[in-house]
Amino acid sequence: MKERTFWLVVLGALLIWSFLGLSWPGKTLAVGLSMAAKMVEGILHPDWSFAGETLRYLLESLEMAFVGTALSALLAIPFGFWAAAHPIGKAFLAAVRTFPELILAIVFLVGLGPGPFAGVMALAVHSTGMLGKLYGEAVEHVSPGPREALLAVGAPSTSLLWLAVLPQVLPAFLSLAIYRFEINVRAATVLGVVGAGGIGTPLLFSLQAYAWPKVGMMLLAIVVAVFAVDFLSARARQKLV
């Protein structure tokens, strides 16, 4: 009980420290409120003449998410087996995971120049770190039965992976990859902020120009796309498990 009080005090002190150190914004409340009113007003009246262009950018984000996820879903297979077999594999994947997509995107921008390719690579690398870990856990939970059965009838050891291990883990791998696609769709909508392709670039420009009806159009498209992808992905994963 005493320890609990101690931690609550620590938590309280941290909170006070955080709020006291806040720098207050330069805008006054009145300016902020009128700005917010304009923003809400504009966002609630999307610019439908911009719908075609919005869809093109949105498609780019979705394609980036799909290709990035697919690449990582394949790359994560060897890394997952490595992580299941050896602690170094686990540590390697943990190191890869620490870099957020946006930071990776900036690194790839240096080598690849602006455009969706850098975004795809950023998504692929970060997701490989995540999926590799989860794949590794799936591999560790494989039942030894089929493997032993194959060995008992004298099957060649090269057939073990294909006939005993992969059939057990593939549904889990696919389910995890589909879930990762959900996350990557969200990530792909913001990668454009650093110039790595997708709907983020026009969105940032419109935000900075206070072009709220355009922002409203793009936000609407993003929200609908994210909802749809989440719904379909949940359906697909239910079927797999």
């Binding site: 806040l22 914004p25 805008k27 923003m39 913001v190 969105l203 936000l219 993003i222 989440d230």
Partner: peptide, 27 residues
Amino acid sequence: NFLRTLPELLLAALFVAVVGLGMMSGL
């Protein structure tokens, strides 16, 4: 569900427009 569809970075960009540059919009 709706609140979670918007990425944090987008929310932050929206708040920057409303309250101005700085920590407050991030918070």
